[in-house]
Amino acid sequence: MWQKVLKPHVAAGELVAIGVVQEQHPDRAKLYRQWRESDRPIYVDALNLLSVKVVPVPVAIDQAGIVRHERITPSAVVADFVLRAYPSTRVDGAMNRAKEPSLAALTKEVAQAGDARSWRSLGDASFLCGGAEAIDQAAGAYERAVALDPDDGGAQFRLGVAFRRRHESAARRHGDAQASVEQWGRVLMIDPNQYVWRRRIEQYGPRLDKPYNFYFWVEKAREEILARGERPVPQPVEPTGSEVAPPARRTADGSSSAIPDPAPRIASIATPRGLSRSNRSSPRRAWSRDGACAFAPLFA
């Protein structure tokens, strides 16, 4: 529905569609993008840094960055947003511009302030750097953060994400998988209604808690990609166990709860087919592996 509605406007350059995906494994999002032949910029928020509580949420933002609709529908997006003129808002270029985190500065900050917030920020920066050493740093920083502020659900959630990421890496430690589930369990005690947090524990926790097969689409995606003559994006970590198992819980009539909630959980942000690669507008930033991410181990 979204694809059909947005196609002419994206192609005409009137609109940029951007996705932020809540996903523990970025490679799965990449496979999903390939399957849907999406050409849109998609960003991964495995840690839920943006504090998203529910998905999908399509937000209409005007050319100056002002929110015009907090949650718009496919039937309204053209008339109520794309074709509507908004007053030009002069915004200071430096205002509201996300800064590149500096691991050196954050390391200094935790040494000086040593508060929960600075440890959490160090955990975020370490996690985003990637790599085995960085995931150890991230988990250690989040552990310090939650020790200082156990009520910080965001830090508690991120610690679970880091444990799970480490469990699936060469740096795996005994007990990481169970630790992530326990961690997310604590998170739900803080906010039982946080849908994104809840779904993460349901993906990896007891099968009984699963409302549906979360990655039912992976095999179907591979089949369709292969049928197109393409090679599916490799998955270093295959969906296994509770991630793909049908839920054990049965309804009164004996059937499993095959219908996910809320529906649809996957927003159709796929790019219209035929849109050329030249239309991609995904800016790159150098903040990554070799610059700001070079840091000395804290938890050696």
Partner: peptide, 16 residues
Amino acid sequence: SDYRGKKNLLTHFASW
């Protein structure tokens, strides 16, 4: 902010 200057439809979604 790299997309300022054009209207954005920002969709938070999940692949699960």
